[in-house]
Write a protein that binds this DNA or RNA. Structure first.
Lengths: 345, 345
DNA sequence: GTGAAAGCGCTAACAT
DNA sequence: ATGTTAGCGCTTTCAC
């Protein structure tokens, strides 16, 4: 393995100068820098990250912890984080908690404490007090994505506002019987997300002078299949049937779309459907939705961390929870209700 | 930060003994080991990975390089690899190449060479000779997943056999007009995968005494949308219309299923569709398919690496390319063709 | 079975 | 602007 002293010898300088020239820290004469760079390139020298880390205490590596991998939202966040990290010259070490609880404990009690990461991004994770404590004890910056975490800087969309917007879109089109397919409150995914999204839906109805009906809420588990099943229940009951559905995620919304199709219901003629996410399949299915931008969330998380790791003075890091932008995207799954019941007016 | 000497002092032994006791290498009296473990636990001691790496030359970390993240196949491989790695106490550092080419170069010329990973898993990557060379120069084990790589140990399914099996399933049901939606050969994904899958389809037809028709092959790009479009073309042409379709991936197959539905074609009555993958949505759509098991592929890749990193003598590592298992899974999207054309007989 | 001590390869004071 | 040098925190001979 070619080491720093090989380069130093080749360039005719000391190892300290090589280190300075290559890392950019400290002043080096331009001519020297060039000689060093040439020598390094010629020898194919690359710093040993462990030696460098040991000496500096910095790893140029951040840990990203996710509850699952096989979900569009998580991979999008990771992708965004990775993209930005690479620009900063950082690595991304991935911890996936989808295994059993022992695994989760191992991650928090061992892996993250091995001084291998300079900071951690926790995606959609409801951390326990212990976990937050041990992470903080590490003295490493921590940022959460996907929901508020007490005592932790987090990035997340306003889950209440998001479904409220979706519901208002439907109301503004003239719908008055609007169903909701939301997460199962009994197994809250994280951060009361299902509950919050439901609250937004109900708030919009109330503001429009409507009373949310228990029967128009169907719990599901954030998958296409589960959305399909819920929608079938909702649409199959003739005295219940809404003219529009707000689903708490695009995958559930797509399931609802497919259910409607299987039942011979015309979308958006007889049923409007709106989701939350702007999932990669939303465009294909013509699904109206409220976009959250997970890739951007990952990027922003990294920026926050970098500001803390290598302060540039540009930003202020005060806020505990930074609200993220979201946008209504209208496609072809939402429209005015057919004037079937015009007579009622 | 509590270090090894703190533990040594607390346990009344030397740092050498602490190291031996905690790492399991070398002999330590059981009583001593317990004292050390107790001390370490009490102090909340965790080894510094950089110090340990510097001393041993090992990182307990492997790099996984993928071309994209937002694809079921890749995340499944990663998930499987991660699962196994965690059992071995290893970390997983993720490199995503979906950015531009400069990024790819950075990964291979810098990141992977920083001595930060003990080995690398390249998923569905057609590596250049230079890339393989520089990786080999590192002296780190390398295994490929998803396709054969010359000079590299790889794990992959037999792409020819897989579509051959799918096509044979259709033939055995009595189909004789079978279309194929495959990858676009002009932008081969990797390893001539599209071509190989097409070859399997054609081989099956030929063995059944049928001649593959140019017009029954439609190129697409491995997405649902692209499968949908291709299927529409294929099914919309009355003098072309096949009674069955083999798609080179489940996502394309699902697109075809949706196209058939939109055209009012009954599946499997008027059209049978089979894919390749056993994608997470395949069950929901009742899609018959040939399962490959990406999670297992990730796990196997790790096992191969571990055998090389910490030989247990149990296995032999001879084979350049290990063929992986695949299974036909019949659901409700395939059946005998309707005897509409029985008269012809 | 345990301890002393010499590194592992780099960085950052401190000098010059 | 550059060199000297003392660590960073651990592992691993080599003694005992």
């Amino acid at each position: 393995m070619v080491g720093i002293d090989d380069v130093a010898r080749q360039a005719g300088v000391s190892t300290a100068t090589v280190s300075r020239a290559l890392s950019g820290r400290g002043h080096v004469a331009p001519a020297t820098r060039e000689r060093v760079e040439a020598a390094a390139a010629a020898l194919g020298y690359v710093v040993s990250s462990s030696a460098s880390s040991l000496a500096t205490g910095r790893n140029r590596n951040i840990g990203v912890v996710v509850p699952f991998l096989n979900r569009w939202f998580y991979t999008s966040v990771i992708e965004g984080a990775q993209r930005r990290l690479m620009q900063y010259g950082y690595d991304l070490t991935l911890y996936n908690l989808s295994g059993d609880d022992r695994e989760r404990e191992k991650v928090f009690q061992d892996y993250l404490l091995r001084q291998r990461v300079d900071a951690v991004i926790a995606v959609s994770l409801e951390l326990t007090v212990d976990e937050i404590t041990s992470l903080h004890a590490l003295g490493k910056p921590l940022v959460g994505v996907g929901g508020p975490l007490s005592g932790v800087r987090t990035l997340s969309i306003d889950d209440v506002a998001v479904t409220k917007l979706a519901t208002e879109h439907l109301l503004s089109l003239g719908h008055t019987r609007i169903g909701h397919i939301g997460g199962d409150v009994d197994r809250e995914l994280a951060f009361h997300l299902p509950t919050n999204r439901r609250l937004g839906y109900e708030a919009a109805l109330r503001e429009a002078g409507l009373i949310p009906e228990r029967e128009l809420y169907f719990p599901a588990v954030f998958t296409m299949e589960s959305g399909y099943t819920a929608a079938k229940q909702m649409l199959g009951n003739p005295r219940l049937r809404p003219t529009a559905i707000v689903a708490a995620s695009d995958e559930m919304a797509i399931g609802a779309l497919l259910a409607a199709r299987d039942m011979g219901l015309d979308v958006p003629g007889e049923l409007s459907v709106i989701g939350i996410d702007d999932h990669e399949l939303a465009g294909f299915f013509g699904l109206s939705t409220v976009a959250q931008h997970p890739g951007l969330q990952g990027e922003r998380a990294v920026e926050l961390l970098m500001e803390e790791l290598q302060p540039s003075g540009g930003a202020h890091l005060d806020d505990e929870n930074t609200p993220l932008p979201f946008d209504l995207i209208v496609r072809s799954s939402t429209a005015r209700p057919l004037r079937r019941s015009a007579g009622r007016r």
